[in-house]
């Protein structure tokens, strides 16, 4: 049974969408969202469209949604399996936060990587030591994988 909260959140996502983010519920499972995030301007991800899946566990909103990137992305806080390191998806989750806030945070993570708390050490290391090379690689990956 769909909860009033999930219903409202879903409605609002379609009536009042977030710029650069498309989130549509799965046809068979209202807890499952197919997400597309467009790479923010002035970042190496610009021009790419990144697919992600968002899932609301039964305990939502007492526990955070689970979000996974489906498109390969060269980013220090997102690993090869698409897992995301983001505080509000873990210890800083608050039940008063919503799907919107999560998606907006992920979008801004693309513009503002957190190099101090990397998920992929190697990627973070490259961003620290040779930002130009790292950005070039991120741009290339965006072209190769996020350019449908």
């Amino acid at each position: 049974m769909i909860t009033p909260r999930i219903k409202k959140e879903t409605e609002r996502l379609s009536t009042d969408p977030i710029v650069g983010i498309y989130a549509t519920p799965d046809e068979t499972n209202f807890r499952h969202f197919h997400v597309q995030i467009s790479g923010p301007a002035d970042t190496p991800y610009n021009g790419g469209l990144f697919k992600a899946e968002l899932f609301l566990p039964d305990e939502y909103p007492m526990v955070p949604p689970k979000v996974l990137f489906r498109t390969k992305i060269f980013h220090p806080n997102i690993d090869k399996l698409g897992r995301i390191c983001l505080d509000i998806l873990k210890k800083n989750w608050s039940p008063a936060l919503q799907i919107r806030a999560v998606l907006v945070s992920i979008q801004s993570l693309l513009s503002d990587a957190n190099l101090d708390d990397p998920l992929d050490e190697e990627v973070a290391e490259l961003f620290k030591t040779d930002p130009e090379a790292a950005e070039e690689k991120a741009r290339q990956w965006t072209l190769d994988y996020a350019n449908e």
Partner: peptide, 11 residues
């Protein structure tokens, strides 16, 4: 605007 809604369940 939202003061009469619960900020968690929206009821």
């Amino acid at each position: 605007k939202y003061a009469d809604l619960c900020q968690i369940c929206f009821l």
